[in-house]
Design a protein around this nucleic acid. Structure first.
Length: 429
RNA sequence: GGAGAGGUGGCCGAGUGGCCGAAGGCGCCUCAUUGCUAAUGAGGUGACUCUGUAUCAACGGGGUCCGAGGGUUCGAAUCCCUCCCUCUCCGCCA
């Protein structure tokens, strides 16, 4: 969330930001409550002060004095009671409103309503040109005996799938490649819970608001399945005050990801583009509160992912995500969209996010700077590789006329040294 | 699932109604001693928030915080209730 002081001082900017993001929030209401609170709090403090000193007199008073003090104290108590109740009401109401105030997007975020308005800023590589009719990943996977979406549906409903044989191996291979790439960059590997409490989701900005997209266990446990390792990893140091000497924290985690995909009925129903469960390697950066550093990190985590795509010999573009497509917590987001022949276009495979201190303030994630001052950290994250969408790209882009798949050099060592997988398929009628 | 113990400051740990934001220790900072390191001695060392000294730099004052929320009381870290969490033993299981 945003610092209340910042909201006070920049109310118009904050409101403008919310408009850009097309997010509903009541900044004026929040500021009204804030004003009331700021008038009330000093009075409460003063009364409490009198009450406390009265209590101290009481401790060393003689019996007659006690009677007198007691009477005064009782009066004070009555007076205080109502005010304190109002104060805590205000605090509650303000927190609720404050949580809904979105982060202010960076000036370079383009205006727009949906992903259609995202602005391409870079294109890398050339989409393959086939001298045969290419198959999509479903046909390829199914015919090769690698992919079974019907079995997935039988086991777990629609938007589920089963990977078999070399495709199951390839899933692991991509993730390992991603992981090793990040290890070489000095990122610390983590294995984290994917079933978490409410707080990490609140802290990372998914709640309130994202409940519909999140699987939740029943009342016996009240836990949530994360949609990304960003949640547990970013929340790892919640409520801590880190030493500036241990920053930046560079983390990489591989985890399963769960998404309800509510409200997407009829969208991307074919294949494994939009699924309820997949695996992902995610990079997370926690560093000092310095916008220039955050921007540099943003660039570098974007680069890390581009390098993985380069290693996979895929072509892609980077888009500057528009205001309407940003989450509440974002300052700016760059999506990488990888070429997918079956879409005859680019499909989102990565999402690099910069938050400044928005998540960290919610998480109470702080550090002590060189001068010993306590400050709120900055956080960032980006996908390194998401299993299903990478598999789509790999199968479809590297398919050959006979239905076999050419493996990029970088993946071969995870696939038993093979240069291709799959057998020759019958020509499509 | 059964039985028990416990949640206090960066960490360990004392504290059963007012003198406790909280002993003591560790860690850390400053100074002294020392050729360096180490050791030793002295002092200091929480977060949040409001406020004053004409700038959130410094210093001063107030308030809140001893897992969370309620209650008792003039007054609660200390008593009562509810919840959350951690640990130990037994059982069960990967």
């Amino acid at each position: 969330m945003l610092d209340l002081k910042f909201i006070r001082a920049n109310a118009e900017r904050v409101k403008e930001g919310a408009r850009l993001k097309r997010v509903e929030c009541d900044v004026d209401g929040l500021l009204r409550l804030d004003e009331e609170r700021r008038a009330l709090a000093p009075r409460v403090d003063e009364l409490r002060n009198r009450q406390k000193s009265g209590g101290k007199e009481m401790a060393k008073a003689n019996p007659e004095q006690r009677v007198r003090i007691l009477e005064e104290q009782k009066k004070l108590k009555d007076e205080l009671g109502g005010l304190e109740t109002r104060l805590s009401e205000l605090d509650k109401a303000m927190t609720a409103l404050q949580l809904l105030v979105p982060n202010v997007p960076a000036p370079e975020v383009p205006p727009g309503k949906s992903d259609a308005d995202n602005v391409e800023i870079e294109r890398v590589g050339t989409p393959p040109v086939f001298d045969f009719t290419p198959r999509d990943h479903i046909d390829l996977g199914t015919e090769q005996g690698w992919l079974d979406v019907e079995a997935g549906a039988r086991l777990a409903g629609s938007r589920n799938y089963v990977l078999k044989g070399d495709l199951a191996l390839l899933e692991d291979a991509v993730l390992r490649l991603a992981m090793e790439h990040m290890l070489a960059k000095g990122f610390v590997p983590l294995s984290v819970p994917t079933l978490v409490r409410y707080e990490p989701l609140l802290g990372t900005g998914y709640f309130p608001g994202g409940e519909e997209q999140t699987y939740k266990t029943d009342a016996r446990d009240e836990l949530y399945l994360v949609g990304t390792a960003e949640v547990p990893v970013t929340a790892l140091h919640a409520d801590e005050i880190l030493a500036h000497t241990e920053l930046p924290k560079l983390y990489v985690a591989r985890s399963a990801c769960y998404r309800r995909e509510a409200g997407t009925y009829g969208k991307d129903t074919r294949g494994i583009y939009r699924v309820h469960q997949f695996q992902k390697v995610e990079q997370v950066v926690i560093d000092v509160a310095d916008e220039a550093k955050s921007i540099a990190h943003h660039r570098s985590i974007l680069n890390n992912s581009k390098e993985v795509l380069d290693l996979c010999e895929l072509s892609y573009r980077v888009v500057n995500v528009c205001g309407g497509d940003l989450g509440v917590a974002h300052v700016q987001k760059f999506d990488i969209e990888t070429w997918m022949p079956s879409r005859n276009g680019f499909g989102e495979t990565h999402s690099a996010s910069r938050f400044y201190d928005y998540q960290a303030r919610r998480l109470n994630l702080r550090y002590r700077d060189v001068e010993g001052k306590v400050r709120v950290c900055h956080t960032l994250n980006n996908t390194v590789a998401a299993s299903t969408r990478m598999l789509i790209a790999l199968l479809e882009n590297h398919q050959q006329a006979d239905g076999t798949i050419r493996l990029p050099e970088a993946l071969r060592r995870f696939m038993g040294g093979r240069a291709t997988i799959g057998r020759a398929l019958a020509r499509k009628g």
